[in-house]
Amino acid sequence: MVDLMIDAFRQQLEAWLPSLSDRLVPVGKNLLKRNAAQLQTWASLAAAGQLTKDEVAWLVRSRMDLTRLTALESAGLAQVEIDQFRNMLTKATIGVLIGRLTGQDG
């Protein structure tokens, strides 16, 4: 099912954004593969009549929102790490400078 989705995605991209198709297909492929299990579950529930097509579409969009939330979380946590690194570097620089000024470096 994921392969069919990737083919559909590639066709859409080639029609709309042919210049970016080569670069965006791998991104879409990874995204779909990461969510493959969830998509299979929803497809099975739809086949069993427990979910409507509209509900499946809503859930897929919900999954995309979740992907955006996860990306924001990762970006935020990366900022925290960058701040920690900068603080460490600043402290080390000041330590060396003060040491030199006071003649207490070792």
Binding site: L45, Q50, L51, W58, L59, L66, L72, E73, G76, L77
Partner: peptide, 20 residues
């Protein structure tokens, strides 16, 4: 079925906010 599936998404969504 829809409620159950959406709950999983929303719970994970809140978890990203809490973890950040």
């Amino acid at each position: 079925a829809f409620i159950r599936e959406v709950s999983i998404q929303i719970e994970s969504g809140f978890d990203t906010i809490i973890r950040l």
